[in-house]
Amino acid sequence: MPINSDIRAVRGLPGVAPTPGVAKPNPILAIEGVVRHFGGITAVDVEHLEIQSNAITALIGPNGAGKTTLFNLLTGFDQPDAGRWTFDDQPIHGMPAYRVARLGMVRTFQLTKALSKLSVLDNMKLGAKNQSGERFFEALAPWRWKSGDRSIETRADGLLERFNLGHMRDELAGTMSGGQRKLLEMARALMSEPRLIMLDEPMAGVNPALTQSLLGHIKALADDGLTVVFVEHDMDVVRDISDWVVVMSEGRLIAEGPHDSIGRNQTVIDAYLGTRHGDSSTSGVTE
């Protein structure tokens, strides 16, 4: 049920060659020589990658390909052995995670991090940026932050409704199902009004009926100017919403292009078949 497929098709990246590391007309994120070793394994070794602004990019690859590690590096949650990258032409390598997030590049986690002892609403409010009540002395004076908090609450309620979580609003987040936690984490990230959102397996565990509405929501966000990068294993989902697909295997960028070019790519087919039949030790750990 591709809702906006016509618009997407037009917005895709016509004229960009489907070769790994190809330059994009308007990259929001540009990565250069990023390497991360864990002991003997090279988890990530990406020579060059650009993420087109205002597009939906799918990052795919077999288990252990280095997708999560790449997310961790780019968002400041892990330090690379080498490499540099820019967000909106600003170098951000070496920047602490919270500052990367403040710039507008926000990620979610493969293993969900819903804050279980906070209410769903408090989880959402935590996501909002520039709250005056987050400063100690202002916090002591409720009249200074109450009105701001109320407008944040209105925004949170709107998002919760859109993510079908409105009825959970006042529950502790720990009482939610795995799928609902995924949704909450995504909604919470959106509370910070990011310009680039990086979703690590956002659909895992979400019930299929909801997946459809979620996909629609992600497309709508992209239409509003948000750039989306997401890791996903379900190729139907990838086909449905992505403008561009990037494929990693064993830490390297092995292919990129529109999804129809990826399906026919022999390197990609080999990579997937290779791990399925090959060394199982590379596919165990995913985070």
Binding site: P96, Y98, S116, K117
Partner: peptide, 12 residues
């Protein structure tokens, strides 16, 4: 509960 979740939302 989870420092990394808080960091990912831009808090120091």
């Amino acid at each position: 509960e989870d420092e990394d979740a808080v960091r990912s939302l831009g808090k120091n």
